[in-house]
């Protein structure tokens, strides 16, 4: 590399870094809109209230980020490419019929084998509880969905291709799309009932839409939609990063289309 260019980069990096640290330490916080959020009570979990009610549209955007990321991961691994010769050259036909073809996939000890199945079941339960309690306890769709995906990952790591919990990819694709669509449709319902997109309506035809001690309105449903979506997205990401055979199948499929 060019030493002069290196020096210039180093100097600008040092100046920039020093400035960032110096000015960050000068920050004096103005609470501003926070006070309004704290004084207007929606649900007991104030963060959830912001996430799904005051700024629910941001959360929709965040869902879309995740869904776009998963779509692009599919593209990277050979879905719908205009030209797949580069990938075909890299991913040769599989030697074994198993889905997970990591090299030197050794056997785990018995303790791991016997514990991971019950653990994964209980993790799923815990994830479901976290999703459903999003409006009253610390938690919510993202955390719960991540927990369920974690149980999938645990199961895959412990058992490899014979994983007892197995989401096949058509199911994951559908679940993901349906989760995001459910979010959008709930938003439109709010638009029909209250006049604004993602309006939080608590009753419909005189019935509570989420019966219980806390009138949370649409927030629990949004939590469920997000939970299913996150579960699907994270599982797909793991699926793609670990299962080479899926990629090879995908490339073969796109070969037929391109011909």
């Amino acid at each position: 590399m060019n030493p002069k260019r290196d020096l210039a980069i180093t100097l600008s990096f040092l100046i920039f870094g020093a400035n960032i640290i110096y000015y960050l330490m000068q920050i004096k916080v103005n609470p501003g809109v926070n006070i309004i959020y704290l004084k207007n009570y929606i649900v007991p979990n104030y963060v959830t209230a912001i996430l799904f009610d005051w700024r629910g549209y941001d959360t929709l955007g965040e869902c879309l980020v995740l869904i776009v990321a998963v779509m692009i991961s599919w593209i990277i691994f050979g879905k719908s490419l205009y030209d797949n010769s580069f990938l075909k050259e890299l991913f040769k036909a599989p030697e074994v019929g198993e889905y997970i073809t990591l090299q030197r996939w050794g056997e785990f000890t018995l303790a791991i084998k016997y514990l991971s199945l019950p653990l994964s079941i209980f993790l799923v339960g815990l994830g479901i509880v976290t999703i459903l309690g999003g409006h009253i306890t610390p938690g919510g769709g993202f955390q719960g969905g991540a927990l369920i995906a974690a149980s999938f990952i645990l199961s895959i790591i412990a058992f490899g291709s014979n994983s007892p919990l197995w989401f096949d990819h058509p199911f994951l694709e559908k679940l993901e799309t349906l989760g995001a669509l459910a979010y959008i449709i709930i938003g439109f319902l709010g638009m029909i009932i209250g006049g604004y997109y993602l309006f939080n309506f608590k009753t419909i035809f005189g019935l509570d839409i989420f019966p219980g001690p806390i009138a949370a309105g649409i927030i629990p449903y949004l939590n469920i939609a997000v939970g299913l979506k996150v579960l699907a997205s994270l599982s797909t990401a793991i699926y793609l990063l670990s299962c080479e055979k899926v990629i090879i199948e995908r490339i073969e499929k796109s070969d037929e289309i391109l011909k």
Partner: peptide, 24 residues
Amino acid sequence: YPLTQALVLTNIVIEASMLAIMLG
């Protein structure tokens, strides 16, 4: 103050998805 706590939750997901693409 709750506002930025909610923003962080959003930002974590955004970062994670960017990193997933790059790892791929």
